[in-house]
Each structure stands twice: as C-alpha cells, then as structure tokens.
C-alpha cells in the first residue's frame, strides 16, 4: 500500500482501522486571540495563531533553508534542515506552530548552524552531484566524504515526490523500506503502475533525481512510456492520455494556455451580463 493518508481509512488488516463513530460532538474550542506576536531574530512580527515558524520567519525576511518542505504540500519535518531555536530548543520551523504570544525565535545560533551543517554533511553523501544540495553544502562549509558515501544515488529521501503524487491523486509511488535502505519506488519495487505521467514528482524533486524525457509525442518517466494527447484547440502535446482519463475525460484535455484563453472568454461572456460597477474585467 503506497504512502500514508492523513485521514483515517479502514485498517490494513493489522490495526482496527477507522475510528468508531463519536458519541457526542466535540465542544467548540473557546474563542482565542487570533494573532500572536513575537520576534524572529529580534524582528517583531504578529501572525495568525498556529502559523509555522518558517512562514513567520519568511514574512520577516529571514531566510531558513528547507529541503523536504514545499509550499504546496503537507509538511513532514523529516529532513531536519530548517531547524531554528525557540525556547532554548531546536525545533523544525516548517512544522512548529506559533501558538503563544512573546515567542522569540533565533535562526542563526551556533546550535542551529551545527545542526544544519550536520544534516547537510549527511545528505551531500547521498546526492553529491545535485546542484541544490551542493550549493547548500558549500554555504555551510561541508563536503562529501568518500568514507561514508555508501549509496550516492542522488535522492535525499525528502519525500516531496511522494507527497506530490499523493496530493495529485494517483499515489503511484511511496517511500518503501526502512532505515538507510528506504527509497522511493512503485509498489513491489517495480515501475509504478498507477503513474499517470503527470511529472508532479519530478518537478517537486529538489535534487533532479527523478528524470523524464519527451520525444515524438511521448513522455518517459519511471521507466514507463506515456503518449501525449494533442490539445483539441491548438494541437500542443502537454498532457498524457492517462492524465486526461484520471481527471475525468476529454473535457479538460485542452492545454493550459488554451484553457486560460477559453476561461477568459467564458468569464467575459458572464461579465457581459452582470459586470459590477468599477470592477476590472478579468
């Protein structure tokens, strides 16, 4: 079974699976202040309660390096690169929720730097050629070490590809195995049968580990070949036939730029009926 789900689903034969129906509804949480205020590296900021430290830092213009984090995907906190110091302890900023007023976060203490250096010294041995990892490693002054380079396969196991695929629906790939041997794969370590060739995984990958190629109206990824269907409007080949089928058939088969055009003309038509005063048309 690939990946994990965020929501409960029937058990896998081991755990009892879905929770029993709740006998009574949860009481509403008491009204809480919506904003919390504090500082990141001394810069004062107030953010909605529950905002991650990473986001708050970015709003302050403080850069924190990340690897497994991706704005469009649920966070996982697994690469441990984005650590920062809060309440005297290291926290992974991409997941740490700011809940209390008066927070004081520091993103450049010696402990933080040591931690990042450590993580990068490990990951550079996995992906010694990946430009992004090399750049980070250079920044933090670490280099690959042949003594510990056991399997430099170019993947840092950030899981972004897996989460992207899950977010898109197919759940074709997963991180399988444990420990050092954990790696991204289709079920049973075979090319993923459920893959629709959407490229989401490859485009989310920070190391370029997932390669793909397009040639003669066909796309190759994950050792599988997909034929690219022509756009009914302009003939451009953008989507695979499997993608179109997965998302509900030919209606959505227009390529993105044609779809934009189509949408704009639809909106214009609608606006002609009820354009509110003073609002610009899309």
């Amino acid at each position: 079974m690939p990946g994990q789900l965020e929501t409960p689903r029937p058990g896998n034969g081991r755990g009892p699976g879905a929770p029993p129906a709740s006998p009574q509804p949860e009481p509403p949480r008491s009204a809480t202040p919506l904003l919390v205020e504090g500082t990141v590296n001394g810069i004062r900021i107030s953010v909605p309660k529950g905002t991650t430290l990473l986001r708050a830092a970015r709003l302050c213009g403080v850069e924190i390096p990340t690897l497994c984090h991706h704005e469009g995907l649920p966070p996982e906190g697994s690469c441990r690169l984005c650590v920062a110091e809060i309440r005297g302890q290291l926290a992974v900023s991409c997941m740490f929720p700011l809940r209390d007023d008066g927070f004081k976060a520091l993103t450049d203490t010696p402990a933080v730097m040591d931690a990042r250096r450590y993580v990068l010294s490990l990951l550079i041995n996995r992906a010694p050629k990946a430009p992004r990892i090399r750049k980070l490693a250079d920044e933090y002054g670490v280099a690959p070490d042949p003594r510990f380079m056991k399997d430099p396969d170019g993947c840092v196991r950030c899981g972004r590809c897996v989460r992207a695929c899950r977010a898109n629906g197919p759940e074709a790939i997963a991180l399988a195995g444990r420990g050092f041997g954990r790696s991204v794969t289709g079920p049973f370590r075979k090319p993923p049968e459920a893959c629709i060739g959407c490229l989401a995984c490859a485009l989310c990958c920070p190391t370029g580990k997932i390669t793909f190629a397009e040639k003669d109206g066909a796309r190759r990824i994950w050792d599988r070949e997909f034929s690219l269907a022509p756009c009914p409007e302009c003939g451009a080949r953008v989507f695979t036939a499997e993608q179109i089928a997965f998302y509900g058939g030919s209606a959505s088969a227009a390529c993105p730029s044609c779809r934009k055009k189509l949408m704009a003309s639809e909106l214009k038509k609608a606006a002609a009926y009820e354009a509110p005063d003073g609002l610009p048309l899309p």
Binding site: E76, G77, S78, C79, R80, L81, Y118, V119, L122, L123, N125, R126, F148, K150, V156, R157, G159, L175, G177, R178, G179, F180, G181, R182
Partner: peptide, 17 residues
C-alpha cells in the same frame, strides 16, 4: 540502525556513519 524507520535524515543517514 537496522530499526531506524528512515524517515528523518539524521537517524537514517547518521546512524550508518
């Protein structure tokens, strides 16, 4: 190291070191 689940980098990559 054999029991590390392999999710986070320090344990997955650091224990083998």
């Amino acid at each position: 190291s054999g029991e590390s689940c392999g999710k986070c980098a320090p344990c997955r990559e650091g224990l083998p070191v």
